[in-house]
């Protein structure tokens, strides 16, 4: 028996400035699951998220949060969701503790143990020693901790984290990752957008790849990579002897390579790799398994070839 998703968004469509930026996207996330939402800039990730937490009204589609329809029962739905936006949106007139307590006053029914819950989060997020500081005095990592603490103050069932670690140093990123992992263990459904592929891979149980406002691929990381990129990536210098021959071989098979710095990255399936080896037996190159970085490169390549045709 499958568990009912806490986030269930179906057929989301949104146009902004006359352009359709989200076009029929479905998003679901189950309790204790982390859904990684990926895609290049302009893919529709943030717009999809902003619809799911009520900032934008979808032109079409339905959004249900823990069984509450966001349009017809906004208060109940919003009670069940928490949001950590891309930008820091603290209340600059309140201290770290004050921010948490004030946020608690924006919920009904009232949080009965607001003070106790605030203390608990200050401890859990390592903010206790800064509780009387103003948020702008915190480092980037601690600001993000406060943002996430504020998002979960009212014990939501679904948490949206929009690029929660952008701009953080590696140590601070790891600390935020641990906090996100702890949300999962508490049974929350976590929807995460990020540009860091290692982050998406480490944290997400499932990935959803958006491109040009549509779902391009979805599922486990390895399946998504297989669908979009292929099973292998061949890496070889652009100035390889016989580069024209390789170009011609790729063109004849309807394939294209991404160029990263001075290297070509050729995504190939098993049969394609065997054919490549047979076609260029003396060539020196590296074969590796694909990563989510290759996924981004492949999507960018698809987008640019789409815009060329």
């Amino acid at each position: 028996m499958s568990i009912a998703p806490l986030l269930d968004a179906r057929g989301l469509v949104k146009s902004l400035g006359g352009k359709r930026v989200v076009d029929g996207v479905d998003l679901t996330c189950a309790p204790g699951e982390v859904l990684g939402l990926l895609g290049p800039n302009g893919a529709g990730k943030t717009t999809s998220l902003r619809m799911c937490y009520g900032f934008l009204r979808p032109d079409a589609g339905t959004i249900s949060i823990a069984g509450h329809d966001l349009t017809s029962a906004p208060d109940a739905a919003r009670q069940a969701l928490g949001v950590c936006t891309q930008d820091d949106t603290f209340d600059a007139d309140f201290s770290v503790r004050g921010n948490l307590e004030q946020t608690g006053r924006y919920y009904r029914p009232r949080i009965p143990d607001l003070k106790q819950r605030t203390d608990e989060l200050l401890d859990q997020f390592g903010l206790k020693e800064y509780e009387h500081h103003m948020p702008e005095m915190l480092s980037g990592g601690y600001k993000r901790r406060l943002m996430i603490a504020r998002a979960v103050l009212h014990r939501p069932k679904v948490v949206f984290l929009d690029e929660p670690t952008t701009g953080l140093d590696p140590q601070a990123r790891v600390a935020v990752w641990e906090l996100i992992a702890s949300l999962r263990t508490q049974g929350m459904a976590v929807v995460l957008t990020t540009h860091y592929m290692d982050e998406a891979e480490r944290l997400s149980d499932r990935l959803l790849v958006l491109q040009s406002g549509k779902v391009r691929a979805g599922g486990l990381a390895k399946h998504v990579l297989g669908d979009v990129v292929g099973e292998h990536v061949v890496v070889l210098p652009v100035n390889t002897m016989g580069a024209e021959g390789i170009q011609a071989w790729l063109t004849s098979r309807g394939l294209s390579a991404s160029t990263v710095l001075a290297n070509w990255h050729l995504p190939l399936d098993a049969a394609g790799l065997a054919a490549f080896v047979a076609a260029f037996p003396t060539l020196r190159y590296e074969v590796r398994i694909p990563t989510l970085d290759d996924l981004f490169l492949a999507l960018a390549e698809e987008k640019s070839s789409g815009s060329r045709t």
Binding site: R78, G82, V83, T89, D91, D93
Partner: peptide, 14 residues
């Protein structure tokens, strides 16, 4: 500048 509206809008406040 303070973006405190955006912070409030992530709650039950519209």
């Amino acid at each position: 500048f303070q973006k405190s509206w955006e912070g409030q809008l992530t709650t039950q406040v519209r």
